Every structure is written in C-alpha cells, then in structure tokens.
Deep mutational scan, measured.
Amino acid sequence: NQASVVANQLIPINTALTLVMMRAEVVTPMGIPAVDIPRLVSMQVNRAVPLGTTLMPDMVKGYA
C-alpha cells in the first residue's frame, strides 16, 4: 500500500504548505501520494484542512 499525504496540523485556507505540516500515512481512500511531498512545499491549500485529514489533489492549488 502506498502512503498518502496527511495533515500534521490544522492548515488554514490559503496557507502555503511546509514539510512540518505534512506526514506520510497509509490511508483509505488514497490521497496525494507521499512521494509528492517535496512538490507540495510552498503550494497553497484552497480550503482549511483539519489535523489528520488526507490531502486530495483538489485541495491544493496548482497540484492537479
């Protein structure tokens, strides 16, 4: 099973992602693959992402 990107903290809307905000976890359903974490750094979320939420492609501006 491939790990997905999960929020390590509450990420407010329009926040630029940093490594500290994300962790890799095997979850269902799968979200953004953990291998993409370096690519996500400095991209912004388009909604508030609660702690423990799996990041989906439509939550990150410019990802999809």
Rank of each mutant, 00 (worst) to 15 (best):
V49C: 04
I32H: 00
V6C: 15
A24P: 14
V60D: 02
N8E: 09
P50H: 09
T15A: 09
S4M: 02
I37N: 00
M21E: 02
G52E: 12
M21N: 08
T53W: 12
P50I: 12
T15F: 05
L40P: 00
Q9M: 10
V20C: 09
N1G: 15
T28P: 02
A16I: 08
M43S: 09
T53V: 13
V60W: 02
A3C: 15
N14M: 07
M21G: 03
P33G: 14
V27F: 02
M56Y: 12
L17V: 03
I37Y: 02
D58G: 11
R47S: 08
M56I: 13
P12S: 09
M30D: 15
L10S: 12
P33I: 09
L10I: 13
V60N: 01
L51V: 10
V26R: 02
G31R: 02
P29C: 15
D58K: 08
P12Y: 07
N46E: 13
V5Y: 00
Q2L: 10
P50L: 06
V60L: 10
V49S: 03
A3T: 11
R39L: 14
L55H: 01
I13S: 12
G52N: 11
T28C: 15
M43P: 00
N1D: 15
M30A: 07
Y63H: 07
P57A: 13
I11H: 00
M59E: 03
L55K: 00
A3S: 13
M30F: 09
Q44F: 11
L55E: 00
Q2H: 15
L19A: 12
K61N: 14
L10Y: 07
V49K: 00
T54A: 08
L55C: 02
L40K: 00
V6F: 02
A16L: 09
M56A: 14
Q2V: 14
T18E: 06
A7C: 06
V20L: 11
M59D: 14
E25T: 04
L51F: 11
N46W: 12
V27P: 01
M59R: 03
I13L: 09
M56P: 01
A16E: 10
I32D: 01
P12Q: 12
V26A: 12
T54M: 04
R39G: 07
A24K: 06
V27G: 03
L40H: 00
K61C: 08
P38H: 12
P57I: 06
V20Q: 10
R39F: 14
